[in-house]
Write a protein that binds this DNA or RNA. Structure first.
Length: 657
DNA sequence: AGCACGCCGACT
DNA sequence: GTCGGCGTGCTC
């Protein structure tokens, strides 16, 4: 019997409509060539003159749709850009968060770049698309027992602890963590499988790239990252699709990179908020990685100087094992007495012992001073009555960007030259706290002749050399110092801890530990003004104990990640309808209505996640299909929001209540 | 989103 | 009797 030619193509359409988030059957017209899974096609929708693009997901010999089918219009390009493993991942990620697969697919497949694609197709036709065979020894992963490493790479899952400290990788200095992850990835590739390394920001990616450059030829390293120009990003995706194994390196969207033989999927620093996807359906890179590893196999690694409560939860469940260096290094944390009272000049803010350590260290090399906020004075108050100064236009807090400068609004940026207190009418302002600029100025006065470097969101500094300097940096913006910092001073701990968010303790420990990891081996790390379990966690370096205690607290309160949460937002009766559709295991924690939109926070157990997502999704589709008239009389801004939107695992659902 | 289908009021 | 109002529902 001759094989039956598939005559049906099942297509996912590129449209924002939740109702169309499923495969539609199309006939493959006789004579149309190149209809294979993964290619971009254009198809008619409803009326023959309306065209939509989509991707062929699968071929079939029999239609599923009971009615008559339309013909495919055209194959847009012969590049099979939607790989089966990516489709499976995208579908599951969307389902988990009650979202559309196409929204996730946009992260996986960047905007088409015709020239890049043509060049790649030509190279492939000429047999030049693949790198030459790799002839390298599998590198060892420095610091770890090779037996444990190989057990992991054989398909294990691990919460990976890493040593603090920096080392040289070619021309650049990188964290030891980057060497460890790069070696894991290179070991995977030399054994014939691809690796994906996901890191929160370009500074981390740069370190990984430098570390990988020492272990693999450039044609085995592929950047795939939303921060790249569109053409480079598209080229990266095409390169990752090859047969030869490569390391794919990028930010949160790199978890969606094509890789048919995936040997390692590693996520660095999963507590960093940059790994939380800001686009619908808002799925965190950590969750996407968990889904992908479960579907595709290979090793899964979550690595960090600290451990998130999410990873701790998975470790306690036994889903992740714990892997640490054989002889772990620890930062040398010097305990300091609490900071003195009025934080008005550098001397008063820094306890004596920390001052002496820093003074001694700055004679020999760079010293890191971590502060909480950029600018000069991060807070301004009325000098008479103490009321916080706020912007007259938008109510945002005022702060002073530079010494002697006019106050400006943190939110809208408007300068406020004629401020008057709303409470007492005074026009005198007083400064509260010190930002990076003011701290740098004060330290410059205290250490005359010392070189002062400021690194914050505006003044980006990636690295500093070995010469003596005071490097004042806001958290997360710390440059890597050649040879490591001779001392690290964590100055604004008290201010950081004072913020009231669910994850503040975890976040603080991560900010401090990441900075402490930039110290030279044996150099003192001083945490000013903070004691208690956070200080203990930093000085013992026991990341597991802290995460365990933190998770226990969340369990007691029923907060994430002990349970899952989702926020439902939309027209009040749409939200109410969604609430009614929920399974009984989902509890409504809070609900609020403000100017015509309602918002509800629901909580449910992990075991019921799929069921809750299915119920919410059903309601979203129903509402999108039926409900479309805007509220009568209400202003109609250009784009009306969907009547019902859901956000699962919102990182900070309780902040805005 | 668009666009057709469909079931009630004033028109040549 | 019909033209067309836009509420309702579908798109392979």
């Amino acid at each position: 019997m001759p094989p039956v030619e598939p005559t049906i193509a099942r297509v996912i359409l590129d449209t924002p409509l939740p109702q169309l988030d499923r495969l539609l059957d199309y006939r493959i017209p006789a004579g149309m060539e190149g209809v294979v899974p993964g290619v971009r096609v254009s198809v008619p929708l409803r009326t023959a003159n309306r065209m939509t693009q989509g991707f062929v997901v699968e071929l079939a010999t029999q239609q599923e749709h009971p009615g008559p089918l339309s013909d495919l219009e055209a194959v847009v390009s012969s590049a099979e850009v939607l790989r089966p493993e990516v489709w499976r991942l995208v579908r599951a990620v969307a389902d988990r968060a009650a979202g559309s697969a196409i929204d996730v697919l946009r992260l996986a497949i960047p905007k088409r770049q015709v020239r890049v694609e043509k060049a790649w197709l030509a190279a492939r036709a000429a047999g030049r698309a693949e790198p030459p065979p790799l002839e390298r020894e599998a590198p060892v992963v420095p610091g770890y027992a090779t037996g444990e490493v190989d057990a992991l790479l054989a398909g294990g899952r691990a919460a990976l602890e890493v040593d603090p400290g920096v080392e040289r990788a070619g021309e650049v200095w990188v964290g030891r963590w980057a060497l460890a992850l790069a070696a894991l990835a290179a070991r995977t590739v030399t054994r014939g499988a691809s690796a994906i390394l996901v890191a929160p920001d370009h500074r981390d990616i740069r370190q990984l790239e430098a570390a990988l450059g020492e272990l693999l030829p450039a044609d085995r390293i592929v950047r795939f990252d939303a921060g790249q120009p569109d053409a480079d990003r598209y080229r990266g995706m095409l390169r990752a699709m090859g047969e030869e194994p490569v390391v794919v390196l990028g930010g949160r969207s790199a978890v969606y990179a094509p890789a048919s033989r995936l040997g390692l999927l590693a996520v660095w620093n999963d507590g960093d908020p940059l790994l939380a996807e800001p686009l619908t359906p808002y799925v965190h890179a950590r969750d996407a990685a968990l889904i992908r590893q479960e579907q595709q196999g290979g090793a899964l690694v979550f690595a960090g100087h600290t451990r998130t409560t999410e990873v701790e939860r998975l470790a306690e469940l036994g889903w992740l094992s714990r892997l640490a260096p054989e002889r772990p290094r620890r930062a040398r944390v010097v305990s300091t007495a609490n900071a003195a009272g009025a934080p008005d000049d550098a001397h008063a803010r820094i306890p004596g012992i920390a001052w002496r350590e820093a003074a001694a260290a700055v004679a020999t090399g760079p010293v890191l001073v971590q502060v909480a906020r950029p600018g000069y004075s991060p807070g301004l108050r009325c000098a008479e009555c103490g009321t916080a100064a706020r912007c007259r236009r938008c109510g945002g807090p005022l702060r002073q960007q530079r010494a002697g400068g006019a106050p400006s609004c943190l939110w809208c940026g408007v300068e406020e030259t004629h401020w008057r207190c709303t409470e007492c009418g005074s026009s005198r302002l007083t400064r509260v706290g010190a930002g990076s600029t003011r701290t740098a100025e004060e330290l410059g006065r205290a250490f005359p002749g010392a070189r002062v470097v400021v690194a914050d969101g505006e003044r980006r500094v990636l690295e500093v050399d070995e010469r003596p300097a005071l490097v004042v940096a806001t958290r997360g913006a710390e440059p890597v110092a050649a040879g490591g910092y001779r001392a690290v001073l964590l100055l604004d701990g008290e201010r950081m801890v004072a913020r009231e968010t669910l994850r503040i303790a975890e976040d603080c420990l991560r900010w401090w530990s990441d900075a402490a990891a930039l110290a030279a081996d044996g150099a003192p790390v001083m945490l000013v003004g903070v004691g208690g379990r956070l200080a203990t966690a930093l000085s013992t370096g026991n990341v597991g104990a802290f995460a365990r205690a933190e998770l226990a607290d969340r369990r007691a309160l029923g907060f994430p990640p002990a349970a899952r949460v989702a926020t439902l937002e939309g027209l009040p009766d749409a939200v109410a309808a969604a609430r009614r559709a929920l399974p009984p295991e989902a509890a409504v924690l809070a609900e609020r209505v403000a100017d015509g939109r309602a918002r509800a926070i629901i909580r449910f157990d992990y075991a019921h996640g799929a069921e809750v997502a299915r119920a919410v999704r059903g309601e979203i589709v129903r509402q999108a299909a039926t409900r479309r008239k805007p509220i009568p009389g209400a202003a109609r801004p250009g784009r009306a929001p969907l009547p019902l939107r859901a956000r699962f695992d919102d990182p900070e659902p309780f902040d805005e209540l």
